[in-house]
């Protein structure tokens, strides 16, 4: 469970997160949307300590990120992350991308990690790509490898930072399918995305952010059918043409 308690953050003078409050319960899927520069990626990256914040607190399973004794290395092992630009390691084969963290961080044996990696590649539908380098895969395939890489650490929570926005349209579905499957398996997920179809299908809660604040939140019905704020109405008009 993640508790975000009145979090604020500044980049110099600019306030990028403004008193953000949110709770993500175990097994929940929370979708965060909003215009670019609204602070949604910053919020996501603050959940696993990639972005520090100045005010408030974030607690992951009761562990405060503000506590100087908190071990971020340990904390992150339980939080997988998927990036907009995939961020696979280009000098390693697909299979090595997936096995390196389990072998080097969790000290699993090569064969154990390799077996698990192949299962994960099956799960995301590309076992035949195991021995290729990421550069030889399509964007959609690379993102699926990135998801498999994160899952290899057997995380409790998965964070997705605009996982489909760098993809060609015909590849978006193959990635979303994997994410839907993951959501339905009970994974706790925080997803920054504009894919409203995905939000409708699996989100337990949708948050709309603008200028560092959470403007509106809702389940899919209330969110899409009766948006309250003008800002959200305008945003939905733009993305749901």
């Amino acid at each position: 469970m993640i508790e975000i308690i009145n979090v604020s953050k500044w980049f110099g003078e600019l306030k990028v997160l403004d008193n953000v409050k949110e709770t993500i319960n175990k097994g929940q899927v929370v979708v965060i949307c909003g215009p670019s520069g609204s602070g949604k990626s910053t919020l996501l990256k603050s959940l696993n300590g990639l972005e520090p914040f100045q005010e408030g607190d974030i607690r992951v399973d009761g562990i405060s990120l503000n506590d100087p004794k908190t071990n971020f290395i340990k904390l992150r092992q339980k939080m997988g992350m998927v990036f907009q630009r995939f961020e696979l390691y280009p000098h390693m084969k697909v299979i090595e991308n997936i096995t390196i963290a389990p072998t080097k961080v969790l000290n699993q044996s090569k064969s154990q990690a390799g077996k698990k990696a192949m299962e994960l590649l099956e799960r995301v539908g590309i076992p035949e790509q195991a021995d290729k380098y990421p550069g030889n895969l399509s964007g959609g395939q690379q993102q699926r490898v990135a998801i498999a890489r994160a899952l290899a650490m057997e995380p409790d929570i998965m964070l997705f930072d605009e996982p489909t926005s760098a993809l060609d349209p015909e590849m978006i579905k193959e990635v979303l399918d994997v994410m839907v499957d993951l959501a339905q398996s009970g994974m706790t997920m925080a997803v920054v995305t504009h894919e409203m179809g995905f939000a409708k299908e699996v989100a337990d809660e949708i948050i709309f952010m603008d200028e560092g604040r959470i403007i509106e939140r809702g389940t899919d019905k209330s969110f899409f059918e009766n948006p309250e704020s003008e800002r959200l109405k305008e945003f939905l008009r733009k993305i749901l043409i």
Binding site: K45, L50, M79, E87, Y89, A101
Partner: peptide, 11 residues
């Protein structure tokens, strides 16, 4: 992003 990816895997 490479550093962020490594950090988020617990390195």
């Amino acid at each position: 992003g490479q550093m962020e990816a490594a950090y988020s895997s617990g390195f």
